[in-house]
Design a protein around this nucleic acid. Structure first.
Lengths: 134, 134
DNA sequence: AAAAATAATTAACTAGGGTAACTATTAACC
DNA sequence: GGTTAATAGTTACCCTAGTTAATTATTTTT
């Protein structure tokens, strides 16, 4: 399938741009949003967990986490293990999640307009499978 | 389709990483490769054409083009319009294109392993359609 | 108890893009 | 035909967000 990856990559920047424009109203960016989403799903997690999930090096995650702490959206929960920091969303963080979640879902619906649920399912499968191959 | 865009974005970095690793053998990066591919397809083009196609601002394209000129992979062709620069691949540029094309195609096949042509077609359609909606 | 591994951090660097302002040239308009 | 507006490319400066290497603190392994 010639051109598939090219098209994939070409779309990335415009997509990120619209997501970032949406998020900047809340002083967020997509990279910060990723951490919020991960904590929303997992409840609590260490920085290494986040680093592994997104395949981004730890220093980058440290910065994201510090920024989100400054914004009051996440906080550290006490842990027996003093080596690792366990993070979770604050009440404010959960609130912001809900607000952004709705906006992002609306944007995604807009972007997916005219595409059947089946097509989207297939695209999702595709993305899941190539992940393992990379 | 919950999680589709999240998955899309999550894969981007690892994919770029493997593409960049492949290309750095030739002192290239994917952003430079994009210009080469565009010129391969179009034959000749101005910087504005490239800028519009990839939706990247002109100063970024200026930099990419200068870098590729330094590498001897593209060159300016004389034009009646002295305001615009028309670029094309050099012989060396075409040569490098062929070499990288094969390697990238092989990588893409590897990454798409286990996916039917039909699935890939659907994914491609998906990517084409959302482009207009963004 | 000593050695190895792990989690987080800091510092320094890099890739790549963006905006604003500028020059040179061409096109549009009256 | 001369002035004004638009366009192509460039320069300077800044921003986001990543990386690697080295360091500290703590925990696990032997």
């Amino acid at each position: 399938m010639e051109g598939l990856f090219r098209q994939y990559i070409r779309i990335y920047r415009p997509l990120m741009k619209s997501l970032n424009e949406l998020l900047e109203k809340y002083q967020l960016s997509y990279s910060l949003w990723q951490v919020i989403v991960y904590l929303k799903d997992e409840g609590t997690s260490t920085l290494v967990d986040i680093s592994n999930y997104y395949q981004v090096e730890k220093p980058s995650i440290t910065r994201r986490v510090h920024r989100l702490q400054e914004l009051g959206l996440i906080e550290e929960v006490p842990s027996a293990n003093r080596r690792e920091k366990i993070m979770e969303l604050t009440t404010e963080g959960k609130h912001i999640y809900q607000i952004c979640r709705e906006e992002i879902t609306a944007l995604e619906h807009h972007i997916s307009k005219g595409l059947s649920e089946e097509e989207q399912q297939t695209a999702f499968q595709f993305l899941m499978k190539i992940q393992d191959n990379i």
